[in-house]
Lab assay of single mutants.
Amino acid sequence: QVNIAPGSLDKALNQYAAHSGFTLSVDASLTRGKQSNGLHGDYDVESGLQQLLDGSGLQVKPLGNNSWTLEP
């Protein structure tokens, strides 16, 4: 069960990665100043990332080996 409060997208993504045990490689300029609506409930990694990114204009991309990145 994930419980991440709304706020900074950077912070939300870092909390989610730490909670879910995956690696997220992101260029900080992509997420700077963006906000997230947070995340509450049970999600697989990709669904949770998509939910956190909702409205940010960013997309999640798998890199393999439980690693992910973001792209515009």
Rank of each mutant, 00 (worst) to 15 (best):
Q1M: 14
Q1S: 13
Q1T: 13
Q1W: 15
V2S: 04
N3H: 14
N3S: 11
I4A: 01
A5F: 09
A5H: 09
A5C: 13
A5W: 08
P6I: 04
P6T: 05
P6F: 05
P6D: 02
G7E: 02
G7N: 07
G7S: 07
G7V: 05
S8M: 09
S8K: 07
S8A: 12
L9Y: 01
L9H: 01
L9C: 04
D10N: 07
D10S: 10
K11G: 09
K11V: 14
K11M: 12
K11W: 15
K11T: 13
K11H: 13
A12P: 01
A12W: 03
A12L: 08
A12K: 01
A12S: 06
L13C: 06
Q15W: 09
Q15Y: 09
Q15P: 01
Y16K: 01
Y16F: 15
Y16A: 02
A17E: 02
A18W: 09
A18Q: 12
H19R: 08
H19K: 12
S20I: 14
S20H: 15
S20G: 13
G21P: 00
G21D: 08
F22K: 06
F22I: 15
F22A: 09
T23C: 14
T23D: 10
T23H: 12
T23N: 11
T23Q: 11
T23M: 09
L24G: 07
L24H: 05
L24A: 05
L24K: 05
L24R: 02
D27Y: 03
D27V: 06
A28W: 13
A28G: 10
A28S: 11
S29R: 11
S29Y: 10
L30P: 03
L30F: 07
L30G: 04
L30Q: 04
T31F: 03
T31A: 03
T31L: 14
T31G: 03
T31V: 14
R32N: 09
R32Y: 12
G33A: 04
G33K: 04
G33E: 05
K34G: 03
K34S: 02
K34P: 04
Q35C: 15
Q35I: 13
Q35D: 08
Q35W: 15
Q35M: 15
Q35A: 08
S36M: 01
S36R: 00
S36L: 02
N37L: 11
N37V: 09
N37E: 08
G38D: 01
G38S: 01
G38Y: 01
L39R: 00
H40I: 14
H40A: 10
H40Y: 13
D42Q: 13
D42Y: 15
D42C: 15
D42V: 15
D42R: 13
D42W: 15
Y43K: 00
Y43C: 07
Y43N: 03
Y43E: 01
D44Q: 07
D44N: 09
V45P: 07
V45S: 05
V45I: 14
E46M: 14
E46D: 07
E46S: 08
L49I: 08
L49Y: 01
Q50E: 10
Q50D: 07
Q51N: 07
Q51P: 00
Q51M: 13
L52G: 00
L52N: 01
L52D: 00
L52A: 02
L53M: 04
L53C: 07
L53A: 06
L53W: 00
L53F: 01
L53K: 00
G55R: 05
G55L: 04
S56E: 00
S56W: 04
G57S: 03
L58I: 06
L58Y: 02
Q59C: 14
Q59N: 09
Q59L: 11
Q59M: 13
V60R: 01
V60Q: 07
K61W: 07
K61P: 02
K61T: 07
P62G: 10
P62C: 13
L63R: 06
L63K: 07
N65K: 11
N65W: 07
N65G: 11
N65Q: 09
N65T: 09
N66G: 11
N66T: 03
S67R: 12
S67F: 10
S67G: 09
S67H: 14
W68L: 06
W68K: 04
W68S: 04
W68F: 14
W68M: 05
T69R: 08
L70S: 03
L70N: 04
L70R: 03
E71V: 14
E71M: 11
P72H: 08
P72V: 13
P72W: 09
P72F: 10
P72L: 13
